[in-house]
Design a binder for these strands. Structure first.
Length: 830
DNA sequence: GCGGACTGCTTACCT
DNA sequence: ACAGGTAAGCAGTCCGCG
């Protein structure tokens, strides 16, 4: 059993495909697959002479093959052009396109290793049964050899990450003033390194070249500070120790953009060889691939997992720093060292604290990885993408790669990516999405929330919505009104698109399988006691999550302008059926069960039974659910029961569940572009109203904050608004406060703010517009700027609390006024 | 010349 | 950069007024 973590191909001779990993007994090893070559497809006019392809230099073989067309589903005749080497594909592709009689070239843009993992059906991150294969060695590693046909027969399965040697590292550098981390080349002052073996052995290291050797523990793990002669010696020591630990998976936080490229740059400058990081040693240790948006950095023979991507995709944070991610996932308040603090501590020789923080960085990066990365491995397995790439890819890309894999298996030709023009054209064709019902504004008691389980995936499956079933020639038009069962209809309500009922579509089949497998995992999950077997439980849970995430991605995928299988009519039909079902159940709830819909969004309804208590309401809702679930192909479920719930506008509400949990959606409390003081005040007001049912106490909260603000004892941090730049400052048509603040900060640092930069700013006292008065927090503090208290009262606190109190029927004067009228909440209950 | 109404740009949320 | 629907702030312009 080889637990593979990495795939590459031999750069000399034939392009053998090499999977690197570790055997179950602990030995590093490789699987070498011979006899698989790059290829692409050519569609040509009748009478095209294939020898013209064979004559091109680099072409090994041309074969006539039959595939299924991705849109019509019909057979297409193609030439499969097999070539010598991955590098020749781009050139040949262009040459072939120029030939007379060639209509189109397909699948010529799929990187060779990914192509190989798909075609050989060997998931790059999986446990592969290599028993019985020819044994030998490859570049000094024990190796198993298979030809392409043998490889396709190998058994494989996903494995638990912590059964491998996992490690993490993080570097601290002295940044030169006025440079961004991207271009800085100041010295690396320390490297922290943390690892864990499958039998639970753990250790942290800090490698440095100043200060004193020391030992301490971080979170109970032994930590050693190793002081080297020089920076170069430190780099060599790190490489050596890393090599001896020999990790399979290496976690970093932003290693793609920072730690790995920086390390490489610095090592190159000092003449230190980092190729020892590779497995086997001697390969290129750090491989940097420039990307359109972000660059990728890999370590040969190991899986570099940059958790920054994982955090961005899976967590909802205000700022995506390691500290925030660690707090959110592990509940640990790790302190952050500012850039100048690092500089200062290093220069002063005040190093103890520095080393401790540095050790914590690697330690918690590893902890974070152990917590978050398993789902990435499952997604890597399902998409056949190498683990480091699966981590970097968006959900849309992951959905596409799974489709590419299954298309290959089913003999379906993959559509090409759209040209720039086509992409722009697609972007302009908007379509209707979900429906949001008007909320009954105000406070309600005993409200039950119901929602459809995986509405869009199920709609796709039940209505056979797919690029290859759209507008078929074989089925009659049957509208939902004509059909006995909605699932019998071929025509989508509201938009009128027709989908085939005779042949199952590619996407419905794909999504159905994901749903089915997920259901199986969930069933197995119910058999496991999380207290008895926490590891097993977690693994199964992560697995079902991966299936769910993927299944949920296909609706959005079909409407994505960049998708190979783009199908606007499909996406449009999914939302149309969604609207049909939610309207249908709303009608049944109201007309047949007397349940009032006080709000609803896309796939959910908030229901209330007038003049009834909680248990009556729940009983009625259950009867209703049973009725609709017997009659519709999609399943409606009871989601939450609210003791009290306040609807403010569409997409903004807050409720208190019978389980004692406050749920807040869309309100300022959950928005990072509102000042903490406004959010906190709104939170308190909501708590008073929902939990205590006491609006007077809510008013008192408001007055207390207003007093505190006026007294001037509020820290700038409480006033800081967080906002993100989505483009370069110069590209803005309208330079709002966050742009102006970013520009002020950039001017001070002598840099240009990049898209994605997160700005924290305050509005200070002075003349001009709000933007004129927006300063980054650091700058405002440094320059002793006073916050504009009137702004914060009028534009932050009051709007936030007014929205709540107005929904309860309070007027502005009642909110601001010193005395409050004694209105009771009951007057405003619907 | 003033001020409210309105529009467009922008962000961050919901499902 | 997987989708569309939505609220809301700020900047700038429009428009009516007499």
């Amino acid at each position: 059993m080889l637990r593979s973590v990495w795939v590459d191909y031999a750069r000399k001779g034939d392009p053998d495909v090499i999977f690197v990993g570790r055997l179950r007994d602990g030995e590093p090893a490789a699987l070498v697959v011979r006899g698989f070559r790059p290829y692409f497809y050519v569609e040509a006019e009748d009478g095209f002479d294939p020898s013209r392809l064979e004559d091109l230099s680099g072409v090994v073989r041309v074969e006539e093959v039959e595939r299924r067309h991705p849109y019509s589903g019909e057979r297409v005749e193609l030439y499969r052009v097999e070539v010598t080497y991955p590098k020749v594909v781009p050139k040949l592709r262009e040459q072939v396109k120029e030939l007379d009689g060639v209509k189109e070239v397909y699948e010529a843009d799929i990187p060779f290793v990914r192509r190989a993992a798909i075609d050989l059906n060997v998931p790059p991150a999986s446990e592969i049964d290599v028993s019985g294969l020819e044994e030998g060695s490859w570049s000094g590693l024990p190796a198993y050899f298979a030809d392409a046909e043998e490889a396709r027969e190998l058994d494989h399965r996903p494995y638990p990450l912590d059964e491998l040697v996992v490690a993490s590292f993080d570097i601290e550098v002295l940044a030169e003033p006025g440079t961004t981390t991207k271009e800085s080349s100041g010295p690396v002052i320390s490297i922290s390194f943390s690892y864990r073996t499958p039998d639970g052995e753990r250790k942290n290291y800090v490698f440095t070249w100043k200060g004193e050797e020391a030992e301490f523990t971080v979170d109970g793990v032994e930590t050693e500070v190793v002081v080297c002669e020089s920076e170069a010696a430190m780099l060599r020591e790190f490489v050596e120790r890393f090599r001896r630990v020999d990790p399979d998976v290496v976690f970093t936080y932003n290693g793609d953009e920072f730690d790995l490229p920086y390390l490489k740059r610095r090592a190159d400058r000092l003449g230190v060889d980092v190729d020892g990081l590779a497995r086997p040693p001697g390969k290129r240790g750090i491989v940097i691939r420039p990307g359109a948006a972000r660059q990728a950095s890999d370590i040969f023979g190991r899986a570099h997992v940059d958790l920054y991507h994982t955090a961005q995709k899976n967590l909802k944070l205000e700022r995506f720093t390691l500290e925030e991610a660690v707090r959110d996932v592990l509940g640990v308040d790790k302190e952050e060292l500012e850039l100048d603090e690092i500089n200062e501590a290093w220069k002063r020789g005040d190093l103890e604290k520095l080393f401790r923080y540095s050790a914590e960085d690697a330690h918690y990066t590893l902890e974070l990885g152990l917590e978050l990365a398993q789902v990435e491995l499952e997604l890597s397995y399902l998409t056949r993408l190498p683990l480091p790439d699966a981590v970097r890819f968006s959900f849309g890309q992951l959905a596409e790669w799974r489709a590419l894999y299954l298309a290959r298996r089913e003999g379906i030709l993959a559509p090409n990516k759209p040209s720039r023009d086509e992409y722009e054209r697609r972007r302009r064709e908007a379509y209707k999405g979900a429906i949001v019902f008007e909320p009954e504004i105000g406070l309600h008691e005993n409200v039950v929330c119901v929602d459809f389980a995986s509405l869009y995936p199920n709609v796709m499956v039940h209505h056979n919505i797919s690029p290859d079933t759209f507008d078929c020639d074989c089925c009659p038009e049957v509208t939902v009104e004509e059909a006995d069962d909605p699932a019998e209809a071929t025509v989508t309500p509201s938009v009128g698109h027709k989908f085939c009922r005779k042949r199952e579509g590619f996407f419905p089949r794909l999504v159905k399988r994901l749903i089915k497998r997920r259901r199986e995992y969930k069933a197995r999950l119910r058999e496991v006691d999380p207290d008895e077997e926490p590891k097993k439980y977690k693994l199964l849970d992560v697995r079902q999550q991966a299936y769910k995430v993927l299944a949920n991605s296909y609706y959005g995928y079909m409407g994505w302008a960049n998708a190979r299988w783009y199908c606007r009519e499909c996406a449009e039909s999914v939302t149309a059926w969604g609207r049909y079902y939610i309207r249908k159940v709303r009608e049944i709830a109201e007309e047949k069960y007397g349940l009032k819909v006080v709000y609803g969004d896309t796939d959910s309804l908030f229901l209330k039974l007038p003049d009834a208590d909680l248990s009556e309401t729940i009983d009625r809702v259950k009867e209703f659910l049973e009725y609709v679930n017997e009659r519709l192909p999609v399943e409606l479920e009871l989601e939450d029961v609210y003791e009290r719930i306040l609807f403010v506008t569409k997409k903004k509400y807050a409720g208190y569940t019978t389980e004692g949990k406050i749920v807040t959606k869309g309100l300022e409390v959950v928005r990072r572009d509102w000042a903490p003081i406004a959010r906190e005040t709104q939170r308190r007001v909501l708590k008073r109203i929902l939990e205590d049912n006491d609006p007077d106490a809510a008013l008192k909260e408001i007055h207390r904050v207003l007093d505190r603000l006026r007294s001037g004892e509020v820290d700038l941090d409480e006033l800081a608004v967080t906002s993100q730049l989505t483009k370069r400052p110069s590209e803005y048509v309208q330079k709002g406060p966050h742009v102006r603040a970013a520009l002020r900060l950039a001017r001070r640092l002598g840099t240009e703010p990049e898209p994605g930069t997160i700005v924290r700013y305050v509005i200070v006292r002075g003349p001009g517009s709000v933007s004129d008065k927006a300063y980054p927090v650091e700058l405002a503090r440094e320059e002793g700027k006073e916050p504009d208290i009137d702004y914060y009262i009028e534009h932050q606190i009051l709007p936030a609390v007014e929205r709540i109190m107005k929904a309860l029927g309070y007027s502005r004067s009642q909110i601001v006024g010193e005395t409050t009228s004694q209105k009771t909440l009951d007057q405003f209950m619907g």
